[in-house]
Each structure stands twice: as structure tokens, then as C-alpha cells.
Nucleic acid binder design. Structure first.
Lengths: 337, 337
DNA sequence: TTGAAAGCGTTACCAT
DNA sequence: ATGGTAACGCTTTCAA
């Protein structure tokens, strides 16, 4: 079924059918009804391809994420999805698997689809100026508005939505300080990553501001992974010299820590105080109520889409970088009895 | 940049440029090089819209799922994604939020995009013949091959990929029986759902086959949710008459059960034997190693895509229903000491 | 080996 | 209020 066939069956021109479909321009009530009847009867479905080509505009939105099976990103997607209908958008989804090559292919494909805009969490943290340049080049070729999500790179061009890593860590450390601890430690993330460094800096700043000494021996350098956090925590517990309070730098770090505590019969909130960054729902469910500084992930997705839409409708808008605030949830685990 | 502009810059016709792009037909080595140079220099990116319109064919694949932020579905997506590149496919993703209306909109949209095919997990279990009819009608309108994933409906037309619910429950119950239990119970899923009924049937069959009496008091009717499972388990523990072994009907049921056991100081694998359906990674991580009958979710996604591709290339192929097998993992929790 | 031209299914402008 | 027609950017067939 094409617009032409519908036109013939309804005894009108395709212009009229087009007007009926798009509710644009004048069309007599009787003929409208006639056309609509034919559309219904023939189950005619207008081609987005033809429409897009003709209007030189699509309603595709490209999403490029590194790990679709990571709950953080699936919540982001869920948030974006909530905004899709009202904006009449269609989502083209690409999982790069943290692979730069696949990222490039995805971006190329999106360019060919003539997407309206792209939301991307870069596959890799582009440290050196070379790879930074290459990501910039890739993004430029897309030739559409772009919003960078969660992972930083040296970007002076595009809008972005990021988490308030520094202050979130600051608040977490502060909570430990307020709980009365003097010996405070941290299990960091991979410090080659900017978000890990920012969190570490927030931690340091809090201790400094409150005059709490930061002891080298209580700084455990992790990698944001469960296993590493588990090993470090275990060492900590077995060393015979553990801090009174500790900050775990992300969800997986918290999980590794809890696992080690369970293994070593360390009671969280009793033998040691803990505050994590990120909320881990499953820990709550299983009764390990960990205090945490966290964010509204779903909201981050919505915000990213909102900014993208703003940018599309107003290309000259000043560059926007949104820092999503943390929320501090204290549930008792920060204490030590 | 359009194919015409490239053609002019390279001093050839657009036909030639098309041949170069698609590596089709004859083209002189020299002119090819010239054209390719222009393409690179101008950063020309051919329009998928125009190409699709001209070829009367896209490489879109539509995915319609009910809850994108459910780990089961994000793993499915991840599996599908692995097959996308090699098939040169682009994924259009729709989250229906278990809402029939949104499902309908999504399906309509996919039809307009002229997708090559669709993989769908229906938003609702369409019980009565009315809603069954309505889903069938919706699907027919898509006018493209369709694979039904995981959730059944009364379908005599499309290919499907489902889990072996019956035998998976049978095996789980069998494991409890082999562990020597005589008093065996189950926390079921929502029995209005076919997959819940199938699992319950598998359970019953196993007891019957082994001559183990099924006692009404040990049948706990749940709803596949954490909270309900928690409440039922708690009642079970507090009743003073609990079974020796129990089957938890899905991942969330297992979680609720474990939570209750923790609350009530019931030692899993000691005070009561448990086998679940579905593997819950987080439980393993936290040291609750639950025996389970489970499936390879990522694989299910791959299989669904593979069947879809087969169907597309061979529309006359006989109807395919793939039942994904269970894997039984015994880790000791099935016992009672 | 290359080019010209028709066609894909729409929209939008200009007539009527 | 309606119709005719060019245009969108590409592929494909037919000629040369």
C-alpha cells in the first residue's frame, strides 16, 4: 500500500491523502472521512523512509552506550524511553561493548540514518590527546547534536550530563566524619579514570576541611570492580589495623566490600562504618542497608534527552553541562559502635 | 553532501559513484580511486533513507520488550547485539513498560519504519480470546516476520523462543527429591501466567513420578515478585511447620525467600533445602549459593535473532518453536542437614 | 566501463 | 478545497 493507491481508491489525489494523514491544510470533511475509511480498510501505513527523505528530517535518536547489560545503563535507557513518546522519537540503540572500533561503526551508521541527535557514553576514557582527537573526529562526522553522558573526555564542544563525583564523595566522607571516626579510609576506583580521581579528591578535601588526617595505609587503590574490592577489603580486615570508617567508591566496590565483611565476620555499622557511592538495591533487599551518596540514574537519562531536544530546537544555545547532584542516604552503616 | 555532489566533484555520473560505494558492477581502477578520494575528502555519508526507499528494503530490526531495566531483558538485548554487526543490522528498540497501548504504538511505528523483522516479548499475557485476537491483529499489521520471545500467547502463526519451564521445574523438584526430602513445597509464580503454570506442573509431575506426596499446605501461591515471596516465606518459617525442601519459581522469588530466611535465622542448605529457577548472580556474590535450574539468557537473544534471519531469508520455512533447555546447577543449598 | 533516466513513497509549493 | 508536479537521494536497468 502506498499513498498513491490510497488516493486512487478514495478518488482523490495523493496531495489530499497527505493532507489527511498529516492533518495539515484544508480538506473537506466528507472527503476526509472517505480517505480515512480507505486508509483503515487497506491498513495503509505511511513510509517513514519516504517521509524522511522528502522532509529532509527524521525522528531518530541515536543512543551509544558501552554495556547494555549494566544496570546503570539500562536504567538510563529506561529514563530516556520515558521521554521518547512525548517527543515522538524513535530510538536506535548501539552497544559498543567498550570497544572503540564498534563505537566508530555505530557513529557512522547513525550518521547514515540521519539521526536528529545522539546521546553517547564514550567507550573508552580517552586520556591522551591522540585518542581524544580521534573521538572528537568521530563525533564531528555524525553531523548532528550530541550529548555526552557520564564519562568525561576533554570536550570543549558538546553538551554533557555528568554526576557530581567530587561532592558526592565529599558528602560520603563527611558522613563518616560526623559519625565520629578519626581513622578514615577509602577504596578508590581506577585512578586513571577521571570520575575515580574526582571522587578521591572529594574524599581528600573533606578530611582536610575537617582536620582529619589522611593516612596512606588506609588508602586502598581499587579499580571499580567487585573482585579487587573484595581482595582489598579482606586484606584490610586481616591486617589487624583497619580504619574506623571507610568510603567505597562505587556500587561494585561496595558489593566486594560487603562480601569480604561477611567472609570475615565483620559487622557493618558495628565493627566498621561504611558509606558508599551508588545505591545497590540488592544489598538493601538482603538486609545490608548501606549508607550511600547516590544519584537518580533514570533522571540522568531524561535530562540528557531534554538537553538534546533543546539543542536541536535551538542550535545556538550556549553550551550546557549539567552536573547531576548526589543524594545522601544515611541508614546507620556509617556508624561504628 | 549527496551522491550527486560527489559525482560532480569526481567528474563522473552518480551511477558510477553508486557502483563505487556498493562495490557493484564494473568501474575502472583509476576512476574508483578518484571517487574514493572525493568521498573521503568530503566526508560523504550515503543516506540510509534514500537507499532504503530505492531498494525497497531496510536493515532495521525492531525489538519490543516490556521492561528494559530488567536484567533478563538487558541480557537478551546484549545477546541480540552480538549478532547485529555480522548481519549488518540496525536495532530499533522499544520498551513498552508492560503496557498494551504502548506496545501497539511501537508496533505501528516499526511498521512505518519498514523493519526487516521484529522480536517481541508481549506486554501482557493475553489470556482471553479477545485480547489474544487483538495482539494477533497488531502483529499482523506489522507485515514483517516476527519472533515471539519468552512469553507465550495463543499463537499458531509465528516462530518463537521459549524456556523449558516444565522440565526446568521438574529437574529442580527432582534435585530436592534426590536430596532425600519427603516434605517438599513450592512458591509459585502468578498462576494466571502460562510460564508459572508450566513450572508448577513440572513440580507436580516430579513429585508424582517419584511417589512423593504433594501437600496442599506446602504450596505457596506467589506472584513472581520479591515482596510476595518474602511474605510467604516468612509465614512458612513462622508457622512451625515448614517443608524440608522448597522450590522457588523465579529469580525474584528466590531473592524474597533468601531475605526471609535471613530475617528468621533460617540457614539455607541446613535448616531447609532450596532449589530455584533462574540464577541470581548477586546471591552468589554475597555467599548465598543457591542451587538452581537456569538458562543462558544471552543465548536466547541470539537464537531469537538467528531464527528471525532464517525466516527472512526463507519465508516458506516451517514454523520454528525453540525451547531453550535448562541447566541444573547444584551447589549444596538443595540439602538439609 | 560509463551515463541517462525511471522509479522508490513521500511532502510542499503553486495553480486552479 | 483539491490536484499537478517537482524534489528528496539513492539504485537499477538499459544503452552506448
Amino acid at each position: 500500500m502506498t499513498i498513491n493507491e490510497v488516493a486512487k481508491l478514495a478518488n482523490v489525489s495523493k496531495s489530499t491523502v497527505s493532507r489527511v494523514i498529516n492533518k495539515t491544510g484544508y480538506v473537506n470533511e466528507e472527503t476526509r472521512i472517505r480517505v480515512e475509511k480507505v486508509i483503515k480498510e487497506t491498513n495503509y501505513s505511511p513510509s517513514s523512509l519516504a517521509r524522511g527523505l522528502s522532509k529532509k528530517e527524521t525522528n531518530y535518536i541515536g543512543i551509544v552506550i558501552p554495556e547494555i547489560d549494566n544496570e546503570f545503563f539500562s536504567e538510563i535507557l529506561s529514563g530516556i524511553n520515558e521521554r521518547l513518546d512525548e517527543n515522538d522519537l524513535t530510538m536506535i540503540c548501539c552497544d559498543t561493548n567498550n570497544n572503540g572500533k564498534r563505537e566508530q561503526k555505530a557513529l557512522q551508521m547513525l550518521a547514515q540514518q540521519r539521526v536528529k541527535g545522539v546521546i553517547i557514553t564514550p567507550a573508552e576514557e580517552y586520556q591522551d590527546s591522540d585518542s581524544n582527537l580521534s573521538l572528537r573526529a568521530k563525533l564531528k562526522k555524525v553531523n548532528a547534536p550530541i550529548v555526552i553522558l557520564d564519562r568525561h573526555f576533554n570536550n570543549t564542544q558538546w553538551d554533557g550530563v555528568f554526576y557530581d563525583n567530587f561532592n558526592s564523595a565529599y558528602a560520603a566522607a563527611e558522613a563518616l566524619i560526623h559519625a565520629g571516626h578519626k581513622k578514615i579510609g577509602i577504596i578508590t576506583g581506577d585512578l586513571t579514570l577521571q570520575i575515580a580521581r574526582e571522587r578521591f579528591e572529594g574524599f581528600k578535601q573533606a578530611l582536610e576541611d575537617y582536620g582529619v588526617p589522611m593516612l596512606e595505609k588506609y588508602i586502598y587503590k581499587g579499580n571499580f570492580g567487585i573482585q579487587k574490592a573484595f581482595e582489598l577489603s579482606k586484606k584490610m580486615f586481616e591486617s589487624g589495623d583497619m580504619p574506623d570508617g571507610i568510603l567505597t567508591s562505587n556500587n561494585r566496590t561496595s558489593i566486594g566490600f560487603v562480601k569480604a565483611a561477611k567472609d570475615c565476620n565483620i559487622r557493618i555499622g558495628v565493627d566498621i562504618g561504611v558509606v558508599g557511592i551508588d545505591h545497590v538495591e540488592m544489598l538493601d533487599i538482603l538486609g545490608y542497608e548501606l549508607s550511600c551518596a547516590t544519584r537518580n540514574t533514570r533522571e540522568m537519562g531524561k535530562i540528557a534527552l531534554d538537553i538534546l531536544m533543546e539543542r536541536i530546537s535551538n542550535p545556538k544555545m550556549g553550551r550546557k553541562i549539567i552536573i547531576v547532584p548526589y543524594e545522601l542516604h544515611l541508614k546507620g552503616s556509617e556508624k561504628k559502635q
